[in-house]
């Protein structure tokens, strides 16, 4: 059951085309990524409770990381 100040039609409408995202794990950190060109991933969001992770350039949003898991 949803309890939100947003109208239900706003929450449920899916008209905007947002890029497909997936969750991957790198070095124990959860990343939400979108597919970038040439099959690599672009970090969209870091999901971590460690504030230091957000200062680590390796995990910053926008960074392109290889999809083969080399980092």
């Amino acid at each position: 059951m949803l309890w939100t100040i947003y109208p239900m039609q706003t929450v449920m409408s899916g008209q905007t085309d947002t890029p497909r995202r997936r969750e991957i794990s790198r070095d124990g950190r959860l990343l939400m990524v979108s597919e970038a060109q040439d099959g690599n991933y672009r970090i969209e969001r870091l999901i971590s409770t460690d504030p230091a992770d957000y200062l680590d350039p390796q995990w910053q949003p926008g960074r392109i990381i290889p999809s083969d898991g080399t980092i």
Binding site: T49, D50, P51, A52, L55, D56, P57, Q60, P61, G62, R63
Partner: peptide
């Protein structure tokens, strides 16, 4: 990348005993 994404060339590296949700 730091300049492109964060607008600053350098970000500090720290470790924290407080985590943030």
């Amino acid at each position: 990348q730091n300049i492109q994404q964060l607008g600053t060339p350098d970000v500090p590296s720290v470790s924290s005993d407080v985590h943030c949700l």
